[in-house]
Design a binder for these strands. Structure first.
Lengths: 350, 350
DNA sequence: ATTCTTTTCGTTACCGCTAACATAACTCTC
DNA sequence: GAGAGTTATGTTAGCGGTAACGAAAAGAAT
C-alpha cells in the first residue's frame, strides 16, 4: 500500500474536475484562466463540471506555479472612513485578480516620523511596489525612501503638478464642467464658485472646468462670484459670506469640495436663505460630510475603488517590467466621476 | 541543454540558503519554522546564510505545502477610522503568521440589506470562517446566515450577553475599576459616574467596576453621583448637567465612554468650570473624540490589534478542529486594557 | 486523396516548500 | 565498546497548479 496521503485539506482539486469532465487538468486550467484555444463544447463541459463540484482554484498553488506572488504595499493614514473602505476593496480585488498580495500598513498619525516608520516596515517585508492613497501620496519622506530603494510607487490623487506619470487621478476638469452644466440646465445663471487650495492641482482643474462650462454657455462671470478657499470648512465660511453679500447675489454656489459646500449651507441658513429654494449649493468629492448636512449635498462622486485598482495595476506593470508585456494590466491614469443629485440643488427661481 | 527554466521570479530560494550553509533544504525549513531538533551551531550557520542572502520564504509555497491557505472573512461597517486601522493590522498579522488569508468585505452602510449582501459575497468566495468587529458583530442577519451555512464566526465586543463563547472582549470591569482607583489615588472622593446603554453588556460591567473600586476604598456612593446615559454625546450632556448641578458637586466625573466625557467637558465649560483644575473628567475607549477635545481626555485604551488577532486565531481553531490540536493558536477571550493619562485629569483640590 | 497549417488538447516537468520516512550521529548504559 | 535509546540531518514525494512542448484532430490548400 502506498504511503498515507499527506493532507486532504483541499476538498476538490483541478484533477477532480478534469476527471469529471473527461479532459486533462491542463484543459481545465485553460478554461479557468479564460485562455483561447479551447473548443466551445469542451469549455461548456468543463464549466459544468466546475459548478457541479463547486470547484474553487487554490490561489497559493496558482501563484506558485505562475511565479506571481508579488507583494504590494499600501500605506494608509487617516483618510475618511468610507474612502479607506472603498479604496481597500478596490486594491484587494486587484490583488486577488492578479494573484498577488496586498500588505497594508497604517500610519497612526500622519506625521513624518510615522511615515518613515511605515515605509521602512514595508521595505523590510520585502514588497515589490507600493500604492499610496491620499494623504500619504503627498508625503515627501515616503516618496523619497522608496525612490532610494528603487521600489516603484503609484500614488492616487497626490495633487502634485510634477510626476504625474505614476499618479492616478480623476477628471477634475471634466467633472467640474459637468457639474456647472448641470446648474446651468437647472436655469441658474448667477453661479458662484469657491476655489480650493492654490497649491493643489485639483483646485486649478476644478476652476478651469467651471470657467469652461460658463464660457460655452456664454455666461460672463462676474469677478464677485468667485471666492478664494482652502478646502477647509472655515475657509468656506469666509468665502460664502463674501458671495452671499455681493449684489446681485448668486442663485447657485459651486464649492470645490463638500466641506466648503457644507459651510456655505450653514452661512446661507444664518442669512435666512433656505436651501435649495432660495439658494442652490453643490459640492465635490462625496465625502461623509456631504450627507451629514441638511439638505444633503448634490456632489461629485469619485470612483475610489476603480482608482485603487488602477493604482495596483500600475505598480504591477512597473514591477514586472523587464519580464514581459503587460497582459491584462489595464489601468487609467484619470478616471471619470459621477454626479450625485441630492437635496441641495433645485431649479432657479425665475 | 536543458529546457529553459520556466521562471526566475524568486531571487533567493530555500535551496540557495541550504547550499550556502552547507546543509539540506529541510534543515533550513526547520530553522525558519523555529522547530526543535536542530543543533544550535547548525542553526547559527543557517541564520547567517539567511541574512547574508536576505532570504525571504515564499508564502505561497509554504501555504501550499502546509495545506494551510484557509480564507477567513472579515465584514466591516463604519467603525471609527482608527479602530478599523488597528483592527485590520491585527487581523492581517495573524493571517500572515498562520499562513492564511484574510478577505475583507465592506458594508457601505450598516443596514440589514447590505449585511446580507456582504455575508453572501463572502460565503460565495469560499471562506472557512469569519471574524466580525463591531458593529457587524451584533448584526443578527449576518450571524444567522453564517450559522445556517455552518461557517464558524468569531465576534469582537458584540456586547451581547449570550454566546460569549465565540466573542472576544475586553476586561471592562477590571479597566473601569482601575480607572476609578486612579481617580481615588488622585485624591478624589466625590466621583460621579455616567452609565452607558442599559442593553449593552459593557455598561453593566463598567458600572460594576466603578462600584467595586469605590466599595474597596470605603467611599459610599451618593445616588446623585450616578447618572444614566446611552453612549451618545447628547445623553452625555443631559447626564453631565444633572451631575454638575447636584450638591455637593463631584470633583471628578467618570463617563462610560469618550463621547459622553467630551460632552461633560463641554457642559463644564458652559458652567464656568475649568478642566481639570476644578473638575476632572475621564472617559473610556480612547476613541478619536478623546483627542479632539480640549483638554484631551484621560481614558482607557483597548488593545484592538490584539483582539483582532485573538479573533482570527479563534476562528482558525474552530476551522481546523477535526484535524489536529491547536498548535500555537493562542487567543484570549478577554483582553486587558491600558489607562492613558492625558490633560483632563488632575489631583483633587483640597 | 495528400500534404500543409492551424487549432485543440495532453504530457511532462517544475514552482518553492514541507510531511513523512530513512538514516546517520551522538549519548548513555553495563 | 557493543547494543539500545536519542537526537540531528538528509531523502523522497508530493501540495495544486501552470509553462513549455508535443501530438492529435480539424481545416485549408494543392
Amino acid at each position: 500500500m502506498a504511503r498515507t496521503r499527506r493532507r486532504n485539506r483541499q476538498t476538490v482539486t483541478i484533477d477532480d474536475v478534469a476527471r469529471q469532465a473527461g479532459v486533462s487538468a491542463m484543459t481545465v486550467s485553460r478554461v479557468m484562466n479564460a485562455e483561447s484555444g479551447v473548443r466551445d463544447a469542451t469549455r461548456q463541459t468543463v464549466l459544468k463540471a466546475v459548478s457541479a463540484l463547486n470547484y474553487q482554484p487554490n490561489r497559493s498553488a496558482r501563484r506558485l506555479a505562475k511565479g506571481a506572488d508579488v507583494h504590494i504595499g499600501l500605506i494608509y493614514a487617516n483618510p475618511s472612513d468610507s474612502y479607506l473602505g472603498r479604496f481597500l476593496r478596490g486594491a484587494l480585488e486587484a490583488a486577488q485578480a492578479s494573484d498577488n498580495h496586498l500588505i497594508v500598513d497604517i500610519c497612526e498619525d500622519n506625521t513624518p516620523a510615522t511615515h518613515v516608520a511605515s515605509a521602512m516596515r514595508l521595505a523590510k517585508a520585502g514588497i515589490a511596489g507600493v500604492i499610496l492613497p491620499p494623504p500619504t501620496s503627498s508625503a515627501p519622506e515616503i516618496l523619497s525612501i522608496f525612490e532610494e530603494l528603487h521600489i516603484p510607487v503609484a500614488t492616487v490623487a497626490n495633487g502634485n503638478m510634477d510626476q504625474k506619470h505614476n499618479d492616478i487621478n480623476i477628471e477634475d476638469e471634466t467633472a467640474s464642467k459637468e457639474m456647472t452644466q448641470y446648474l446651468i440646465e437647472l436655469g441658474h445663471r448667477r453661479i458662484g464658485f469657491i476655489k480650493g487650495s492654490p497649491d493643489q492641482m485639483s483646485s486649478t482643474m476644478r476652476e478651469r472646468g467651471y470657467r469652461q462650462a460658463m464660457a460655452e454657455a456664454q455666461i460672463e462671470i462676474d469677478p464677485n462670484w468667485v471666492a478664494d478657499g482652502h478646502y477647509t470648512y472655515r475657509s468656506g465660511v469666509t468665502a460664502a459670506e463674501l458671495l452671499l453679500t455681493s449684489t446681485p447675489r448668486p442663485s447657485a454656489i459651486f464649492a470645490s469640495n463638500d466641506d466648503m459646500a457644507a459651510a456655505t449651507i450653514g452661512v446661507a441658513h444664518r442669512h435666512g436663505l433656505s436651501v435649495p429654494e432660495e439658494l442652490t449649493v453643490v459640492g465635490f468629492d462625496n465625502s461623509p460630510s456631504a450627507i451629514s448636512v441638511w439638505p444633503e449635498l448634490t456632489t461629485i462622486d469619485q470612483p475610489v475603488s476603480a482608482m485603487a485598482k488602477s493604482a495596483f495595476n500600475l505598480v504591477l506593470s512597473k514591477v514586472g517590467l523587464g519580464d514581459e508585456a503587460d497582459k491584462e494590466l489595464r489601468f487609467e491614469h484619470t478616471h471619470e466621476c459621477r454626479l450625485i443629485e441630492r437635496g441641495s440643488s433645485a431649479p432657479a427661481n425665475p
